[in-house]
């Protein structure tokens, strides 16, 4: 694989990581901790929203994030032809 190709692959990978980690930070440290008090004024059923993110929602998002990452990377590997045979 050529040097420029490798760099392009790595750059796209880093962009995915940045976006996914921003979401990771936003649901846990953001919604679950820093803004939990503010979000608690919103209610979904019996849950205050900030509390829900801290004890439930962030965990669901974490699971989804990993599977999205797997899907994105499998596509990226194929695009740059670096996937495993």
């Amino acid at each position: 694989m050529s040097k420029t190709n490798l760099q392009a692959y790595w750059k796209e990978n880093l962009r995915y990581l940045l976006i996914l980690l921003l979401i990771w930070f936003a649901v846990s440290y953001g919604a679950g901790i820093l803004f939990a008090d503010a979000l608690n004024s919103v209610r979904i059923g019996g849950f205050k929203l900030g509390f829900w993110f801290a004890q439930q929602g962030s965990i669901y998002v974490f699971v989804v994030l990993i599977f999205v990452y797997v899907w994105l990377m499998n596509k990226l590997d194929e695009k740059y032809d670096v996937h495993e045979k």
């Binding site: 980690l21 990771w24 846990s28 679950g32 962030s58 965990i59 974490f62 994030l65 990993i66």
Partner: peptide, 8 residues
């Protein structure tokens, strides 16, 4: 969060 978020 602490014991799940690390997996991401």
């Amino acid at each position: 969060m602490g014991w799940t978020g690390g997996y991401v």
